Computed example of a mutant assay.
Amino acid sequence: MKYAKFFPYVYLVFGALFLVDAISKYTANGEIAYPSVLLGITAIFMFFFRRKFMKKFDKRDQ
């Protein structure tokens, strides 16, 4: 189950990609891409949420 330790970083990568997409759409068209912003913020939140609970469960197992 070593893949579980790398999975939160996937959230971080996708969050960055969605935010870059939103910024590029804003600079090109001047419109705010709300779905991209929402998904980017949610993915970054999930990164910190999963990391916190992974540490909590690791402490409990020791």
Rank of each mutant, 00 (worst) to 15 (best):
Y26H: 13
A28C: 13
I32G: 08
A4M: 11
D58A: 14
D58L: 10
F7K: 01
I41R: 01
K25L: 12
I44A: 12
I41C: 09
K5Q: 03
Y26G: 03
Y9G: 04
A16E: 09
A28I: 13
K52T: 14
T27M: 10
A4V: 11
V20G: 02
F45M: 14
N29K: 02
R51M: 06
G40I: 02
K59D: 14
Y34A: 06
D61A: 11
F45C: 15
R60M: 14
D21W: 01
V20M: 09
T42H: 10
F14A: 00
K25Y: 07
Y3T: 07
I41Q: 03
K55Y: 08
K56G: 11
L19N: 13
K52D: 13
F53A: 05
K56L: 15
K2N: 07
G15K: 05
V13W: 07
R51W: 04
I41A: 12
L39K: 07
A28R: 14
F6R: 10
K2F: 06
D21A: 03
R51K: 07
F49N: 05
G30F: 10
I41M: 05
R60W: 13
K5H: 04
E31K: 11
A22M: 09
M54H: 04
F47L: 05
T27I: 12
L17K: 04
S24C: 07
V37A: 02
F53H: 11
Q62G: 15
G40V: 02
L38Y: 05
F49P: 00
